[in-house]
């Protein structure tokens, strides 16, 4: 059993095959894309592999500590060059092979022309707890 984070990017990922920005799609293509994402997570819920999923706004800011008795420093909005995460899905699967299979399926979501986007997704394993048996 292993958990993986599937990360979708607004920008900063490698260029997808079907590289048309979403605002240039038809409304029906946008709806079809959303429907595909809903169906995908509903399917994962049925297989018992779904853990969590959230979408993130593209806005936001950097924040850091600025010393005692001082408010945290903020810096934003983000520069155009920043890698920007659009959302995530967390899955709990039997193997890395299965995680890759699912990410591949998610990346096939339809985009412009109803064709798969072939979007690059980041797949990151969770660090686990220590096993009970050590040697």
């Amino acid at each position: 059993m292993a958990k993986y984070l599937l990360l979708k990017h607004y920008r900063g990922a490698k260029t997808p095959v079907n590289d048309v920005p979403m605002d240039k799609w038809t409304p029906e293509e946008v709806s079809a894309h959303m429907q595909y994402m809903w169906d995908f997570s509903a399917q994962l819920e049925k297989t018992g592999e779904w853990v969590d999923g959230q979408a993130l706004a593209p806005t936001g800011m950097w924040v850091r500590y600025d010393g005692e008795d001082r408010p945290p420093v903020t810096d934003g909005p983000f520069a155009e060059t920043k890698d920007l995460i659009a959302g995530w899905m967390i899955i709990d699967v039997d193997s890395e092979k299965r995680a890759i299979e699912l990410a591949g399926e998610l990346s096939a979501a339809p985009g412009a022309g109803g064709r798969p986007i072939h979007e690059w997704l980041e797949v990151r394993p969770f660090l686990t707890g220590p096993p009970t048996i050590t040697e």
Binding site: K3, E45, K46, T47, G48, E49, W50, V51, D52
Partner: peptide, 15 residues
């Protein structure tokens, strides 16, 4: 124990 939602575990068991 496995840190997954109860609904996911219920599906896993019924499958």
């Amino acid at each position: 124990a496995y840190l997954v939602p109860e609904a996911s575990m219920a599906q896993r068991i019924s499958r």
